[in-house]
């Protein structure tokens, strides 16, 4: 039941993101969509990810986006002409893409669970601890690489936003 509620909220707000004329409205609908997705994570017993979703996406990234919209004063930049030719091809291709995703989902539905981390098992330890253990043992190298990526992103953002090159 909860699943359908979240689904409707997520799809509706996603549609509004791409359909609303004001970018600030889009941004707010996107935040709503992220909350809906966080809700899915809770249903899937991944509370840690749900928290991260809210913190990182809704909290950090979307704040950044809204900040940029305000910085560039874009809230009323609406009069951008539409390219219907491109739109037509895009709609057709994404209907096709969705169809393909659907086909793949059906194709993969025969898979049986192989792992040991059943919902019950995760609940005995707690999903935060499991993710933490994985992140600092098995995935330590990607973790370090990710930290370097973030460092590079900081430098990159700084260079791009400088007034002069």
């Amino acid at each position: 039941m909860l699943f359908y509620v979240f689904s409707i909220i997520a799809i509706y707000s996603a549609l509004m993101v791409i359909l609303s004329r004001n970018p600030l409205t889009s941004a707010l609908y996107l935040v709503l969509c992220f909350f809906a997705i966080a809700g899915f994570y809770v249903i899937l017993d991944m509370e840690f990810l749900a928290a991260m979703q809210v913190l990182v996406y809704a909290g950090a990234i979307m704040v950044l986006v809204v900040l940029v919209i305000m910085l560039l004063n874009l809230a009323n930049a609406k009069n951008i002409p539409k390219d219907f030719h491109q739109m037509f091809i895009a709609v057709i291709s994404f209907i096709l893409l969705f169809f393909e995703i659907f086909l793949y989902a059906i194709k993969g539905s025969g898979k049986v669970p192989t792992g040991i981390y059943t919902t019950a098992f995760i609940k005995t330890i707690g999903n935060t601890q499991i993710i933490g253990e994985f992140l600092f043992t098995k995935y330590i190298f990607p973790f370090e690489v990710a930290s370097i990526l973030l460092l590079i992103a900081i430098i990159g953002a700084f260079i791009f936003a400088r007034r002069k090159f």
Partner: peptide, 16 residues
């Protein structure tokens, strides 16, 4: 899949 398609559509049809 629906969310992904909507996102992709947004990338292609929006100019902002």
């Amino acid at each position: 899949g629906i969310l992904f398609s909507i996102g992709g559509l947004g990338v292609l049809i929006r100019k902002n």
